[in-house]
Each structure stands twice: as C-alpha cells, then as structure tokens.
Design a protein around this nucleic acid. Structure first.
Lengths: 354, 354
DNA sequence: TCTTAGCACTCGTCCTGCCTGAGTGCTAAA
DNA sequence: TTTAGCACTCAGGCAGGACGAGTGCTAAGA
C-alpha cells in the first residue's frame, strides 16, 4: 500500500531535518517545520505508522525518530529534489578543473581532492582501463656511450620514459637497430601477448646486445600494467572527524583505515560503478563491504576516452546531504568527461599527457 | 647543580614507563621497577625534587608523575640508549627499499609510507633541491604530422616527457632544426636564466613555427620548477588515532588537518632539517609551528646526490618511543642515501629514473 | 646526612539515586 | 480523521558518597 501524501511529506521533513542537525526529530518540531497544518498528535500517528513500515527508527522509547536506510532510500528515489548548484559553485569547480592540466593521474588525484574539499567528506577517484591497451611505438635516445632513454607511447597516447644505464658501450647504429626491432616485434600487442617466448626470439635476432630488448620491453609492460590497473586516489580522510557520527574514535578509526587500504576500496567500488549510468547512491547496508555497512557512498562515473573509464565519489555517514553531494559530484564528473573528451585545442595551447 | 645518578635513573624509568603505558607513574611502581634498591618514600623525595626542577609534571595532586618536555629532552640527550634494530626489522626495511625502484618522487612517497607503517605514527617525506638545476638536453620525436613528443633531461639525470598536439603540419627536418636550436640556446641554463627575452630571440631564429620553442621551453621550466620545489608526501595520518593522547577528537582533528596542509608542514620542517646532521628530535614546544606545540617530531635527512637533499620524519605525541623511532628512521634514511648514492649497477640490471 | 616507615590528606574516578524534560502511545471527544 | 489531554518511558545531568592511588610531611633509624 502506498504512503499518503502527508506521510511522504513527513518522511521528507524527518530526513532533511536529521541531515541538518544530526538529532532525532520529534513530532512537535515537525509540526512547526514544513507546511503541515496538522497537530503534533496527528503527526505522531503517522510517525508510528512510518516506523512500523520500517522507514524510521527510534533510538529509544522517548527519543525522536531517525530515518532508517530504507527511509533514506525512499527519500533518495522519490522525495529528494535535485539540487541546483549556485553560479558561485559552478564557477569554483570550473576554475579548479581548468586550472592546470597535468598528467592523467595527477588530474584524477586533483579531482578527488577538489571533491573532498567541496563536500566536506572523504573522497576518492580512480581510473580503470576497460579494454586492453597496447604499445604504439618505441623510441630510444642515446645519451652517452653508457646510457640511453627509452620512450614508449601507448595507443591511448600516454607517453612514458625511463633512463637506462649500462655497464658497456653503445653506439647509435646499434640503438637504431634495436628501435626497429622493437617496433616491428612488439607494437600492437597487449600485455599478455608480450610473452617471454616472443622476447627470446627478438633477443636472438638482435644478437648479443646485453638483453637490452628484454629491459625495454619489461619497462613497456610495467607501463601497460600500471595504466590498466591504476590506483585509487583518496583525499580528505580527515573530514570524517567533522561529523558527529564519528565522535567515537573507534568508529572513525575503522573507517579511516579502511579508506587507506587502496585495494579493498577499489574492489568494493568498481563493481557497482561499472554498470552505473550517471550517479549512484549506496546507502548503509547496500554496500557490499562490511566496513561500509553503516556508511553511504555516492558515486559518479566519467569517460576518459580511449577505452578508459573513471569513478569519482565520496564516503560519509548515512546521514549525508545526498542532494548536494550528488549534484556536485555529477557536475565534476561531467566536467572531467568533457575535459578528456575534447583533445582538440585552440591553436597555440598544447594539450598534455604524461 | 647536576642530578645525582639515582635521580637520573628515576627520570629515565619514569619516561620509559610512561612511554609504554601512557599512565602517570607513581613512586610505588617505580620502586619495584628498575634496579633501584630504595624504598618508595626515598623515590618520592627524588620525584619531588625532579618536579621542582621542571623535569616532571603532575596532572593533579594525587596522580603520579609525567615527564615534561624538559624531562624528555634530558632523556633524549643523555639517558636514552640507542636502540638496535633486530635482524628481522633490518631485513624488512631492506626488502622494502629494494623492492621496486621507480621514479624519484615515487620512491620518496613509498619511503614515507613504509616509515609510517614501521613506527605506527604518521610520517612524511620530502626532497628539496639545494642547488639550481639545469636542462641537459632536449629531444623531439615526431609522432605523426600533427603531434610530437618532447623529452627533456636535467643535469640531475631526471627525464620527463610530454606529448604535444598541434593544429598544423610538422615535418621531420623542421623538428630537427628545432631540436638543434633548443639544445644550443637553452641547455645549461637555470630556471631564472630562461627569460622570455631569450625565448623571443630563439623563436625569431626558428622562424614562424607556431611558437613551438616557447611551448617546449615552458614545459622544461615546469619540470625544473617541480623538481626544485618538490612536494611533501604524508602517509598514515590515521595512525594518530591509535594513540590515547588523541582520543579527544578535537585534538586529533587539529593535528590531522595540519598534517594535510602540505605547505605549512614543509615550511615548518625544512628549517630545522637543513642544518641537521643525522637525526633530529623536536619535542613539543621546541617546534616552531603552533599546531605542533604538544607534538614531537623526529627527523632524519638523507642525500639524494646531484644537489638534492631529502628529509623523512614522523610526527607523534610527546610520549613517543624516541629510541625506536630514531633508530628506524635513521636506518631508512641511510638506506635511501645509499640507494641514491650508488647509481652503479650490477650488469644487466637497469637503474631507473623517471 | 641520607633513608625509611607511617600516617593524614588530596583528589580523580566510579557508582548510585534523583530529578527533569523531551517525546511517546493511547484514549476520548470533536 | 483529527485533535487535545494525560500517563508513561527513558536518556542525560547533577549531587553525594565510597574507594583508592599517590602524595607530602614528620619522626625515627642507619
């Protein structure tokens, strides 16, 4: 059976008041609040009903009501009004995004920090390859007779380099030979196609050149690997101490140490995000990870292009200002998508990638 | 007037017991502890004296004694026995250091994380150029007609690259010309010698090539800048919640947010470290920053070579296990110095730098 | 002169019981 | 269906008392 209009109104008022004050809210307060023209007694009846149906909870007999996860869920699905960001806020975000574009990974970390600062909750951000990347080209630059720089570029246009020093001499022609060899044998291959077998063959073709092929290819493999399983950036973990639900140091510590374990966080968050479209809200027990059972997570995904996707999100108590957080997060995510989506530049301004 | 042997022994016992238990320690407990063959009454007399001289403090009349910053200072200077690390511990550190050497900045961040984990206190690490760096060489690699990769190498053998995309065509000879120009005009110059003036002249010599010179040189300047003013890496801030002195959320939050402000931390720490020789211990009020007045900092510096120095340290309550922390820290710092100091490699194993 | 035992005293902590006020559920009337 | 009224519950705050750890002082002993 559906809830009456008034009950929905009451539920919404409870949620919003609790989000603001973090205090259980009672019938009298509700009567004054919100455009309800009924008495507190009536509200009490409705509250009793909402509690029975599981939308609200009572910390103890003589306290007010608090939304349950189910209540938050209904609120988020049906009652919440989408929040518009103020001009001021959008300007602030835009400025931050366009400030200084750096390497891919730095941008992502930066975005996480920004979101955390914007929302006052801990935030995280990650990128993830959804397809297998390959190396697009190799270049070797001779520095002096005992060292050279290897530059590899992936088909997602990420460029990385590394300086190699050798115990023996090296000449320009030698290096050119190696470059050709590398480019013919290893370009276009995914990480698991770069087998030791393949490397042995190429090494043989090169003749006894100190295993240089293997060195450079190993480096290329590292690059591919790090791009495909890229890290999680967390920021603003200390913000959890701002919220009264974490006055209990034990709780705070538990969440905090969970947040600093990159791996589990990545696992816990990657799953729900993958099939998500725009923003996704996970309330308390809806989270898979035990450590997050009384915590909510708001996620937004963005496109990096070139087969990479990203997720950015914040973590906070179930009493979170979902409307505001979701609005900010999706605005930032859109900004990131646009940023990565248009590599065309105004003449004279270079686009950068590592 | 000097302290008697027995009083020193007592002071030391107080400090060590307090470090371990975080509880004020009383005369009776002291009598049993430590090889003192005197009664608790005698100890009481000595405690009274030590308190009067400012080495100890009394939280309230009927509590035990707690070391004052002055007491800790004496302990650290004279009474503390240097702690030897166990074989197990040194092995652990060595493994971690040699695990997977990456770019300079990643190594430093990694070392910070390691120290934090090792000591259970928040840790930080930074590197700092003490001399002005210069660019050693430029290389430009043509990718396709509308994009190229610039590779710059500094005289400290750090290599960085960036992909540039252009709105117009580009040819191999053009690029070669530019490379020569860059290498003749800008190699060996420090950051502030790379004036706009100089760039204009070179630009002119290149003829109308879309301001490419400026683009590449700006990039080189960014590289120099980021190397000379490199960031502070903090790790394990959540560890402060492990210690009873930060059960008070307010305190914890204050310190925490201070730790996440990279800038102030860098300033506060760079000064004492610069003239420090090996390890340096700053106890409570000895810290310059107000936020650290009831916090201790243990620092160790290491050499990166090539005109760069680094500092690594931990932050914790004044009741910190100075002996252990100092030992671990200085071992890690030594390890880092060695790591950076010997770029000679066993044949076949490449040394890496970004 | 230094050390020790004894003792009165201080003071924080813990426990208890009491009171207050917010908020509830129920009932009966409008 | 709504409202007013009323008895009931329960957390939080406060005061008072018992407890115990630890002190400082004094007087006796080495």
């Amino acid at each position: 059976m559906e809830l009456t209009e008034r009950k929905k109104k009451i539920l919404r008022a409870v949620v919003e008041s609790y989000i603001e004050t973090a205090e259980p809210v009672g019938s009298k307060a509700l009567a004054q609040l919100a455009g309800l023209k009924v008495s507190s007694a009536t509200i009490r009846n409705d509250l009793a009903d909402l509690t029975e149906r599981g939308y609200l909870e009572q910390p103890h007999t003589s306290a007010g009501r608090v939304p349950s996860p189910k209540g938050y869920r209904l609120y988020v699905n049906e009652l919440m009004e989408e929040q518009r960001l103020s001009l001021e806020e959008t300007r602030q975000i835009n400025d931050a995004l366009h400030l200084k574009m750096q390497e891919l990974d730095k941008v992502i970390g930066q975005a996480g920090r920004m979101v955390s600062q914007l929302t006052n909750y801990p935030a995280f951000a990650m990128a993830e390859g959804v397809r297998r990347l390959t190396i697009k080209r190799f270049d070797l630059i001779l520095v002096d007779s005992a060292s050279f720089i290897a530059v590899v570029m992936t088909d997602s246009s990420v460029v990385k380099n590394k300086l190699f020093r050798l115990p023996a001499d090296l000449s320009e022609p030698q290096l050119q030979l190696l470059t050709t060899l590398l480019n013919t044998a290893f370009v276009g291959k995914t990480l698991d196609q770069l087998t030791p077998e393949l490397m042995r063959v190429a090494e043989h073709a090169a003749g006894g050149s100190y295993g240089l092929i293997s060195l450079v290819v190993s480096f290329a493999m590292e690059v591919l690997d790090s791009l495909e399983n890229s890290a999680v950036y967390t920021a603003g973990a200390s913000h959890i101490l701002d919220h009264p639900e974490y006055q209990d140091v034990g709780k705070a510590q538990k969440l905090m140490s969970y947040l600093s374990e990159d791996r589990s966080l990545a696992q816990a968050l990657a799953l729900p995000a993958l099939n998500g479209d725009d923003t996704k809200i996970l309330i308390g027990p809806e989270n898979v990870a035990d450590e997050l059972k009384d915590t909510s997570v708001v996620l937004a995904s963005y496109d990096i292009g070139d087969g990479m996707k990203g997720v950015i999100g914040v973590v906070g108590p179930t009493r979170m200002d979902y409307a505001k957080v979701a609005a900010k997060l999706s605005y930032v995510a859109d900004g990131l998508s646009k940023l990565f989506g248009q590599p065309e530049l105004p003449p004279g301004t270079p686009e950068k990638e590592e």
